[in-house]
Amino acid sequence: MAIEAEDTPLEQLMWKVVTLKEAGYRFLTLTALEVDEETAEIIYHFDINLQMKNLRVRFPKGTKIPSISPIYFAAFWAENEVIDLLGITFSGLKIDYHGTMYLDAEDKDTVKTPFCRYTFVKKEAE
């Protein structure tokens, strides 16, 4: 069985989130997981009067995702966790911990991103 989730291409994500905000939905959380070696996906969960609406966004690993924190400020907290745990990066985050939300910078080599069973594309070193 699968949950009811609207498949959204990455380009339409921000537009759909804005329409949901204007319709009065509140942001619950987002779930990030890896699908296979090349792809990862993020599912956004919204809710109005306990009726849920989910948006599913699939993308190849290594893509920079636009952050929805300019629209829903509370999302920055969940997105920072995703940076730490899956290594996905976001652009336009309101408050960015740069991957040090759970781990200090010097420990990052000892703990690999734990949710990616397959190798993950490392972002380019600055």
């Binding site: 959380t29 997981l33 907290w77 969940a78």
Partner: peptide
Amino acid sequence: LYYLKGNGSKNLDRCRIRTPSFANFPP
């Protein structure tokens, strides 16, 4: 909120837990 994903084996694929204290931090 719990999001669970299984793939037919005895290990789940993903167990995502969103607790209320996590949601209450931005407020």
